[in-house]
Write a protein that binds this DNA or RNA. Structure first.
Lengths: 336, 336
DNA sequence: GCCATAGAGGTAAATGTTTACATTTTTATT
DNA sequence: AATAAAAATGTAAACATTTACCTCTATGGC
């Protein structure tokens, strides 16, 4: 592979000159530019990004840490970061495979080894303390989908509690009185807060949910189906279900229809996330929009700003997002 | 950031020794290992991957070139590559944003600048000649979803023609006689070959499709809806539709049901790709499985092998995949 | 006790760039 | 024509590593 020295030698100039034309630096004559450009093309010269990164101590890499790419939610996240990466002429370096605190840490370390300065991290397993330490050590690290009070200005997150409240208000406004809930069996903040917000508003309205009408399962299509079967087996009446996410909601609808219930005429179903799926389901799913792509773009931009030299510390700022109700076909006014 | 020199100085050894413990090289005493390891931990030392790559002339990066990440199909592709990357302790470098031949070329160039030796490239816009040239220049480049005779041993592809044939045989076996087709309006090989294979088998069976029962549109949900509306407007009878992809197929089902047709009782609909969506739709979509994740893994492994020093040239090999029929609920026997 | 040998560790060159600084060339001013 | 200023170019150090080669020390066989 041709190096800058080869180009310099053949063009009959110094490496400095070549470097200058490469970087469109100042003080190069048009004659040199032409001469060097030609040789570069002839030799098929491509500058070595590693050497560049080494000497300039800058990185053109934007790191993303997510569990995987198959989940469309995380794919959208990555896509949001990639969008700003492209805009800034940087590249995406992806670290995935997060199953434990150790693997999350390892994913971040990989980025550090690459001297990646800007990173958007989705971590559910690392502890608050570890994350705080990390954020203080790495100036361009921004957390997404997580809120830690002490480093609030470095967190881009969704208000799940408020999401639950919005869901409850929507269903109450549709005249529903008897509710069921399907939540995720995993003990992380998201399902807990969504349910908490939901129940809080219900309680204020004088309604509450029978414990046997709250079911937990895997946050997948199957999980939704199974949870709904148990809900129906409980034998208690309900006219609306608030479901943890869209995949489970679609599973729920499937089971309900198989059992002779029409959605939304007999039972309303409300999802969460607004993934692509929800627009393709029949009936089209009413859900709460989780603007993950925009959030990812914001996170990437914040991370980028933090690493800019004249960055003002944005302490005190908050990057909370509120989910937006998307009324489609799976929820309707209770008439009977 | 602490460097290897800092570690050496503080541990009271030479940089060579530090490097040796870092790389678990030979000729280091346990005493030195312990001493150096402690200092590394104390200083929070992380080796610089750029410097390493520079001096060793090796890369631990696996490059992927795809149009975007939002499309679940490409996300699966990326995920397949990422799976083997993790297995080999390498990282994913993603280049996206392919809208033109130039941007595809640029994406590949970015990987070359990083001295990425192993790459899986999905290109639809670059010409055969350019790709052949590229493949010959970069020993670790493998093409996915594209077949070019001259470099067949570097192509991992799906037999779209055969896919169309399988679709036709399936629908014929279900006793259908009157067919409609919905294809993509984009003039690339995939839709053309699928349709060609489909028509070929039909013709052999003595059936053919009226020209007004072949519609073209955007390969999306909306495209499928619009195409189906035009199909119905044509006024000709048909009992089965072969659709270019799953998104369009789901759009087609949606329009059919809105017009009072029951799928599959009145009309069977067969999709292509077997994306996540197809399992979530109602009725569940019958489709042809495109094993993109496995194909991506194979492509990555081939690319990896090509760059191994003792690699035998695999000229003469072929990496063709045949789509597999996945019979779900949207196709059924024609009774009436 | 001598010498060959192996094991441990050090020295310094090399990797491909950028860039501060020094030097040379060109241009403008008088 | 001389000189100052500006522009163009070159020189060499620096970036963080790896590794071939060299030196030193300890060990053991005789």
């Amino acid at each position: 592979m041709a190096t800058i020295k080869d180009v310099a030698r053949i063009a009959g100039v110094s490496v400095a000159s070549v470097s200058r034309v490469l970087n469109k630096g100042p003080k190069v004559s048009q004659k040199t530019i032409d001469k060097v450009s030609k040789v570069m093309k002839d030799l098929n010269y491509t500058p070595d990004a590693n050497a560049r990164a080494l000497v300039t101590q800058k990185s053109t890499t934007l790191g993303v840490v997510i569990p995987d790419l198959v989940d469309p939610f995380f794919a959208s996240l990555a896509n949001g970061v990639e969008l700003v990466a492209r805009q800034k002429n940087m590249q995406l370096l992806l670290s995935t495979g997060l199953v434990s605190a150790e693997s999350e840490m390892q994913a971040i370390n990989l980025l550090i080894e690459r001297r990646c300065k800007v990173m958007v991290v989705h971590s559910k397993k690392l502890s608050d303390e570890t994350l705080i330490e990390l954020v203080n050590k790495i100036s361009g690290l921004v957390l997404i989908d997580r809120f830690i009070e002490e480093i609030a200005h470095r967190c881009v997150w969704l208000d799940n509690l408020e999401g639950g409240k919005i869901a409850a208000r929507h269903l109450l406004a549709l005249n529903h009185q008897n509710f069921a809930c399907i939540s995720s069996k995993y003990r992380i903040d998201d399902p807990r807060l969504r349910l908490q917000g939901f129940q809080h508003v219900l309680k204020s309205a004088g309604v509450d949910i029978a414990p046997e009408l709250i079911e937990y399962d895997e946050p997948t299509l199957q999980g939704g189906e199974l949870a709904t079967q148990r809900l129906l087996a409980a034998g208690k009446e309900f006219s609306a279900i608030f479901v943890y996410n869209d995949a489970m909601a679609i599973g729920a609808i499937s089971t309900l229809e198989d059992n002779g219930f029409k959605v939304p005429y007999d039972i309303s179903v409300l999802g969460f996330d607004d993934v692509l799926l929800s627009r393709y389901s029949r009936p089209k799913l009413s859900t709460l929009n989780y603007p993950i792509e925009q959030m990812a773009m914001q996170a990437a931009n914040i991370a980028l700003e933090l690493t800019a030299k004249d960055s003002k510390p944005n302490i005190g700022m908050s990057f909370k997002h509120i989910p937006r109700l998307v009324k489609r076909e799976s929820t309707s006014f209770k008439t009977s």
